[in-house]
């Protein structure tokens, strides 16, 4: 008697399950613009199955399917996380690189001394160089147009060397750092006032 009931239940379940599957097929969704049959199938079946498990006894038959789905789900999740992590690292690197080259170090008039307000930025640059030990860099020393070109060529050299010394004192290898002075030959801002001059007395950074 019980065996007969079980058989009819199984039969019913198979029918029901079959109906669900057919009804589900058109619901396949696209993930990331690309059809991923394995992933989408398990994701779609799971909520439907949950809703159809009013009867506890169904579990026994459905279980193998569910565990397979969970495995796929976990794998997808791992893959997603890995991709996210890579993107995060990539993004972080781009961001760090942009900060390294974008943050310009400014100087006072006729001075190659590092200003106290630039130390935080310089420490950030040291962190970058420590985090990406493969990077080699070029430090460019620049001057404002107030002085004379020969002296400014020398002053730009000293500005670049001040920054280089800071990096070396913070443990960065000498071989990773090159310097060049452009004197007053490459102003960042045109103009003959302090607003322009203060933007031109600077060290810029290039990742080679």
């Amino acid at each position: 008697m019980q065996g007969k009931f079980m058989r009819s239940l199984v039969f019913l379940l198979v029918i029901v399950g079959f109906m669900f599957m057919t009804s589900c097929t058109p619901k396949k969704i696209k993930v990331g613009g690309e059809e991923q049959p394995g992933t989408s199938e398990s994701e779609i079946i799971t909520p439907n199955q949950k809703s159809s498990t009013d009867n506890d006894s169904k579990d026994y038959y459905v279980k193998p399917d569910t565990s397979n789905d969970e495995r796929l789900k976990a794998e997808a999740e791992r893959r997603r996380r890995k991709e996210q992590e890579m993107a995060r690292r990539e993004g972080k690197y781009t961001e760090a690189k942009e900060a390294f080259t974008g943050n310009i170090i400014y100087f006072d008039y006729d001075s190659a001394a590092l200003r106290p307000d630039t130390i935080a930025l310089l420490n950030g640059k040291v962190d970058f160089l420590n985090q990406y030990p493969g990077e080699k860099i070029l430090i460019e020393g620049h001057c404002d147009g107030q002085g004379t070109s020969e002296y400014n060529l020398a002053l730009g050299d000293r500005r670049a060397r001040s920054v280089k010394a800071f990096f070396i004192n913070n443990g960065i290898a000498n071989a990773r750092i090159r310097i060049i002075s452009y004197g007053e030959e490459k102003p960042a801002v045109d103009g003959n006032d302090e607003a322009a001059w203060s933007k031109n007395r600077r060290a810029e950074f290039v990742i080679k």
């Binding site: 060529l153 020398a154 730009g156 310097i179």
Partner: peptide
């Protein structure tokens, strides 16, 4: 000829 060393070679 050209004289070239690391750093600035000028004036």
């Amino acid at each position: 000829s050209v004289f070239s060393r690391n750093g600035t070679n000028a004036t």
